[in-house]
Design a protein around this nucleic acid. Sequence first.
DNA 1: CCAACCCTTTTGAACGTTTCATACCACGAA
DNA 2: TTCGTGGTATGAAACGTTCAAAAGGGTTGG
Lengths: 333, 333
Amino acid sequence: MRSVAEEAGVSLATVSNVLNSPDVVAKETQQRVQAAMDRLGYVPNNAARRLRGLPSSLVGAVTLDMTNPFFTEVCRGIEDRLLQDDCMLMMCSTDMQPGREQHYLRELEKHGVRGVLITPVDLSLRPLLAMARRGVPIVLVDHRTDQGKLCSVSMNNVMGGRLAADHLLRLGHRRIAVLSASVDVQQTIDRRSGVREACAAAGHDPDKVVLDVRVPAPDMTTAETVLDDVLADPVPPTAILCLTDLAAMAVVGGLRERGVDVPGDISVVGYDDLVFAAQMTPSLTTVWQPKRELGHTAAGLLLDETRPGHRHRRLVYRPRLVVRSSTASPKLS
Amino acid sequence: MRSVAEEAGVSLATVSNVLNSPDVVAKETQQRVQAAMDRLGYVPNNAARRLRGLPSSLVGAVTLDMTNPFFTEVCRGIEDRLLQDDCMLMMCSTDMQPGREQHYLRELEKHGVRGVLITPVDLSLRPLLAMARRGVPIVLVDHRTDQGKLCSVSMNNVMGGRLAADHLLRLGHRRIAVLSASVDVQQTIDRRSGVREACAAAGHDPDKVVLDVRVPAPDMTTAETVLDDVLADPVPPTAILCLTDLAAMAVVGGLRERGVDVPGDISVVGYDDLVFAAQMTPSLTTVWQPKRELGHTAAGLLLDETRPGHRHRRLVYRPRLVVRSSTASPKLS
DNA sequence: CCAACCCTTTTGAACGTTTCATACCACGAA
DNA sequence: TTCGTGGTATGAAACGTTCAAAAGGGTTGG
């Protein structure tokens, strides 16, 4: 900046003014400075302006794993919203390790980020609340909290489970296997209770309708291995509800191998509406979530935190059932 | 930092030393300062240290779209490598818009990033080379260049095409439809020329063997729409090679609907080995790429750029054929 | 008893900005 | 002539660090 000032024959302050309040400097000077800038290939130093107290344009997004299509999509929404305010995204995957989360949070704070969007793995939220107290805006993503101190944006997973179950019940299914991963997270707990709600609301006994099945691998790609047990159940289900699309895909494949027709013999429902859900055969009935929008508004909420009149808000998005061809009424028996 | 110094009854420099060269300060003082730090909840200010000339711990990753599973995986590799050196990832999706690319590059430079990993959309590389000249390390990802000035890490797409074609030729296929997107990028051009190479090497006329087919949508999810044309060809193919797995999935579905058995009547090969390739039925024969490793070494190369003896390198990774059950020998006719 | 040395700590300048108060200048009004 | 006045430009301090040089205070050896 000094060189630019010299080159243009003005003072440092004038160069700064050209950049930040162009209206206060004469047209002619402005051009002279501008010219000097490109001649010298000047690039402003964000670190220095931050040091002077300007707000940072960095925002941290801490997710469980950016490789997970759900988070990828959410982050893309975040990125696009941030771009509108000339902010940039720092991506952090915790792999569900509290240590990694801790490390990233610390590092983000050192960088003086404008705020942090996070799907927490440490559910105590201790370090987060501490950061918030130190003045770093925090927005919880895909996680609800009773802490009124934080903004949060999440999905209504209970509703998602209800939608899926409702659809199956309406088709006439009275015995539904629900496949979840072996480790429980709030999201799947909610979805399952949504399923039971739907049963009860329809006047059926949840315990009779629902066959709760656990799949060993956390990503549920091994869903197919539980099929034999499911089919051999004393009261075999006429529908299988998988709490992720990937599992649904494996299930459809496994059923086909066993000579079971989908949806003729058994209906299958997924969750997430990943890109391939529409492509597979039969195309998958599944629960869609407004992932990108979720990220978009989460980022908006975060950017709003620095505004004077800000009030913390807790937004909950509603999933939608996408009916395709993997579900049908059960055969009359 | 000042408060910490006062609280601990030492000078600023001592606090700094505790942080940066603990070996030079007495054990006892160290503890005193440490204590003062947590008591006050002190968080170092990265902007200030950067200002003093320390290298930044920020690294930019500019990809076409972080939603694309290929890039997601690559970026995850980058993230993990960066973490080893306590660096952080700034993610930028250009959506193939030169304007967005330009914007992000500028912004990254303002932030004084340690370097930039990029899959360029502006193939002239003009702004990139300018940045490199200004001292910002640049590593090209999934893009080869003759510019000796830059490091690059890429996939051998010619080899990928060759592997896939070779596999089919060996199985006895003599007529292969190759589906690519309507817009050409270097990657698919290379893959196609690999296919032709394989034909030639096996002593067949590429023009006779290859049926070049274009799919309207850029993401090739509409691949199924070209099937009727393909099947109606004067010399109908016994195998279909799709240059992305998503297309392969659509094709398998389309064939099934038309009563064509895979791989009994027609073999299908994909490209990318996305997560669902192993899950679908039949599981998909496809070309796998070391995505995560690609990102990992790209990041390593970047971090190495600041080391004194650094020489620019151009690494090329080899894809691997993953044979599953969507391919078989053609029926005797 | 003094110089030389080691170990630990401090001083003070710099890094590249922004910002506020101040200075300059020309012009029209009193 | 003098005095504001409005539009522009500048000076200097401050932001939170790091780092080289120097200082302080023991201990040791001559």
